[in-house]
Nucleic acid binder design. Structure first.
Lengths: 302, 302
DNA sequence: GTACCTTACGAGATACGTAACCATC
DNA sequence: GATGGTTACGTATCTCGTAAGGTAC
């Protein structure tokens, strides 16, 4: 196999057809080019160029080598350049996980602005269940997660609130509370709340499945559900209620589940999280793009 | 750009995922592989492999580099190998010129045998006019010519006679000689002979356009024609006659030209010629293949 | 304790430049 | 004689192997 300097000397000479200019382009002496080409010709067993002191032109063999070698060598160079760009963070792919169809639509716009901010970079998205989002972040399978707050974890960095939506209560359609137009937080004591698996951070569980009403009345715990569909199935079966963002009403309509505003409860908030140890210019740029596009506290009603 | 040893160390390690085996395959020390990979990682700005003393596995970046680099590098190797084969005469293309459609058909069979004799080699053919054949050989545009004899030139080497066909006389259809079933050489004095251009070797001109009959009677010179078609047109126009091989009757039938056996003339013979300075194993192999297939003195009647 | 990757260092190979040489126009 | 490719030779860089060091299982 040829050495890099041999390949380059040959290809440049085949291009320039002039030892002096070739040497100049390669920043070496003409003597070096001459010796390198001579060595190649010994290797190949035949002349690659016919040269007088007045003219240099490729032989049939030299022309063949140039024609076959150039595209292959340029492909090598292109591959190296791409990977060097990726390695130095000048290009790459940011992997983002999110939950819920509404979030996916919002992020499509953010991705566009992200690409403008960071040319050479792409963003890929995947939907992930509640319990998986943080695991994906910790395992390094994704770089960012767009998730419902609060998620206070020592190893995770949460960005500012990007989306805020009214909090509603998903409750069995046949339950007497469903007959009301809205529900107050105090009425949560009237039926169990579906619980979340222990894999979900405590801060999030405390927010969604409190054990007491604002007045201090105990809220009975219901069965545990892992995915939103599982939870809503439990709700529909009359096993309890669960607080959700308003968008759930649109994306998860079910005849056995009623959605009612939780009038005096704080909104459901969303934001972007990344792992403390994996903050990069790319994650930062995505944070910025999201903030520019979604703004702080921009309320969306589902 | 990467050096050859860097590319190879990386690709083999990406394949083996083991520094020891990689070093073995490359015939270097493991220390060298380690240092080379480390250097690459500094170049690319990020690790290419995550390694403990127990496990080596590519990072996403390393996997990308391997995936993009391997095909390009293999293409470089393939190009170099092909050209090295060609340069050392282990493969290549033999360019053969010939005259006349019948010759083309014969040579197709010879080419097949030639490829069997010399694996890696191909033969390409081109038809060439009488006057061009020797010029192509001298300029190096072709390696062999299948041509009508005699062509005695100091710089050309003529192989044995491969094809022999009866000599016929092309003469104007309305000429009184055309009324005979055959013509004797002595009757050539009865009409002019179309002449050949001076670019055609003297030996050939002396054979085809003699100035005297066997008995010594002068043969009048006719006008000169360069190509066979030109010559036959002159013949058809009644300007003279011309001796041809029997195959011409089949491949150049014309209403204004009659073909009659030249009963007491030597046959028209064909053979392969190459330039004295360009005898190669390939030309030799083609000569051999032609002799095997066509044999000495195998007479074909057109 | 063993397998194996990494670091340190001296040795050898070779790509390199300078300068003189030679050929063509 | 000018332009430009080639040859000769000393130098410096860089790859290489050896050997010691470190780490995970």
């Amino acid at each position: 196999m040829l050495e890099r300097h041999e390949i380059e000397a040959f290809l440049v000479l085949a291009d320039e057809l002039h030892f002096g200019r070739t040497a100049e382009r390669l920043h070496v002496s003409t003597a070096r080019v001459s010796q390198t080409v001579r060595k190649l010709e010994r290797r190949f067993g035949a002349p690659l160029f016919v040269r007088t002191s007045r003219r240099v032109e490729p032989t049939a063999l030299g022309a063949q080598l140039a024609a076959e070698l150039r595209p292959a060598w340029e492909a090598v160079g292109a591959a190296v350049r791409r990977v060097a760009d990726a390695g130095h963070g000048r290009s790459g792919t940011l992997r983002v996980a999110f939950g819920g169809p509404a979030a996916g639509q919002l992020l499509a716009g953010v991705a566009e602005r992200f690409r403008e901010r960071l040319p050479g970079w792409e963003a890929t998205f995947r939907e992930a269940e509640l319990v998986d989002r943080i695991a994906l972040l910790r395992s390094g399978e994704v770089d960012l997660v767009f998730a419902e707050y609060p998620l206070r974890e020592p190893d995770l960095m949460a960005g500012p609130v990007l989306v805020s939506e009214p909090r509603m209560l998903a409750l069995p359609a046949g339950h007497r509370l469903a007959r009301l137009g809205a529900v107050t937080a105090e009425r949560l004591a009237d039926l169990p709340l579906v619980q979340l698996p222990s894999a979900v951070p405590q801060s999030f569980r405390a927010d969604r499945t409190p054990t007491r009403t604002p007045a201090g009345r105990p809220i009975p715990p219901g069965p545990a559900g892992t995915t939103l569909n599982e939870i809503l199935t439990l709700v529909g079966a009359g096993r309890g209620a669960f607080p959700v963002g308003a968008q759930a009403r649109r994306y998860h309509p079910r005849p056995d589940v009623a959605y009612r505003p939780l009038t005096d409860a704080p909104p459901v908030q969303w934001g972007l999280l990344h792992h403390r140890d994996h903050a990069t210019p790319a994650t930062e740029a995505f944070h910025q793009a999201a903030q520019e596009l979604l703004g702080v506290g921009a309320a969306t009603d589902g």
